[in-house]
Amino acid sequence: MSGMPARISRADVAHVARLARLDLTDDELERFTDQLGAVLEHARDVEALDTEGVPPTAHPLPLRNVLREDVVTPSLDRDEVLAQAPEAEADRFKVPRILGDA
């Protein structure tokens, strides 16, 4: 297993903020870099544990094959759905223009 990366940098935080679509101010960037660093530092003690051969638990339940039948159930009323939208047009959700990968 790969080790933990070095302490999170301001550039890392800026990159992550962009991935998460959060426009941060410079102040926020600064503060979050410190705070995330502290939390990740604490998280390092999981690194100390020997987990060789230990399977990950994604889920506390031993359930398998939870399936439903292919039967139609009622959909929502379109007007009710679109009434919640910040903007709608022609029965569709309206969004600003999409550049590249959004």
Partner: peptide, 24 residues
């Protein structure tokens, strides 16, 4: 941001993966 970082390319196994093994 913490979670995005923990899942981000290169860190998944060190962070999320290891945490899931600790869970076990």
């Amino acid at each position: 941001m913490l979670g995005t970082y923990a899942l981000s390319a290169g860190y998944y196994d060190a962070y999320y993966g290891q945490a899931q093994r600790v869970r076990t």
